[in-house]
């Protein structure tokens, strides 16, 4: 049976259709757009919280969506072990909702940045990276204003130690150098997960990197994240 993925649509989500389209092209996947007020989340095998500007990012990116009733249902799904993936604004929402630790601050340049990035896989045991190997370099674009991951120093060390840092911005050789860091994010962090490895948030947009025609490097690396998720679902 095909795994069923719910892509949650908040007012102001704008990468929701893209996520649905990207997942639907994969074998063994069904994806539905689920309006945030609909109660159907429990019928699904995995949940994607897509990018965009939910509720206009008023107050603070992700803050209002994090308090919506949909979030309670997503929290329950996460507790039951379903894969829950937050992309960009979805990552901001998961952090605001407390499903993931830390905070996302404005980029150090104080500018929005849309760019293809190289990412090093630092953990291959999560629900979203099980089809990758540690050290592998992925090419996936970013597009955001508030993606500078922040956590107190001690927490950063703990995240690394416990393998909760999943992706880091790196150069083509896989080195997470300062020049490869597009936003000033702590320790080049692009993605983190929870302890159980079934909830991940990432700033890059895997849905934009699933087809060679759309990728400057001709890769389909974004699909690896969704394929891993479907396998874990």
């Amino acid at each position: 049976m095909a795994a069923r993925v719910a892509v949650i649509r908040f007012p102001g989500s704008n990468c929701d259709m893209d996520a649905v389209q990207a997942i639907r092209t994969l074998k063994g996947a069904r994806a539905d757009l689920v309006w945030h007020e609909d109660k159907a989340v429990s019928d699904y095998d995995a949940v994607v919280v897509p990018g965009g500007f939910s509720f206009g990012d008023y107050l603070r990116a992700g803050a209002i969506a994090a308090k919506s009733p949909a979030m309670e249902r997503i929290r329950k799904a996460a507790d039951q072990g379903l894969p829950v993936l937050g992309i960009c604004n979805g990552f901001q929402i998961l952090i605001e909702a407390g499903l993931l630790p830390g905070a996302l601050l404005r980029n150090s340049t104080l500018r929005f940045v849309c760019r293809w990035t190289a990412l090093r896989v630092d953990s291959d045991s999560t629900s979203f990276t099980r089809r990758m190997r540690k050290g592998q370099v992925l090419h996936i674009p970013i597009a955001h204003n508030e993606g500078r991951y922040y956590a107190p120093k001690g927490d950063l060390a703990r995240l690394s130690r416990e393998g909760l840092v999943v992706l880091r911005y790196c150069d083509e050789d896989g080195v997470p150098s300062a020049s490869a860091n597009p936003t000033g994010t702590s320790d080049n962090i692009a993605a983190i997960c929870n302890r159980a490895g079934n909830v991940m948030g990432l700033m890059p947009h895997p849905e934009r990197g699933t087809e060679p025609l759309l990728s400057p490097s001709g890769s389909d690396d974004g699909a690896l994240i969704f394929r891993s998720m479907l396998e874990a679902a």
């Binding site: 893209d18 929005f112 849309c114 849905e207 934009r208």
Partner: peptide, 26 residues
């Protein structure tokens, strides 16, 4: 300039700003 614009959303942008003389949408 163009890095401040999201030029990817919609999954249509094949030739992107800075890559070629015109942008190409699928």
């Amino acid at each position: 300039v163009y890095e401040q614009y999201d030029h990817e959303v919609g999954l249509r942008t094949v030739a992107k700003p800075g890559e070629a003389d015109a942008s190409v949408l699928r």
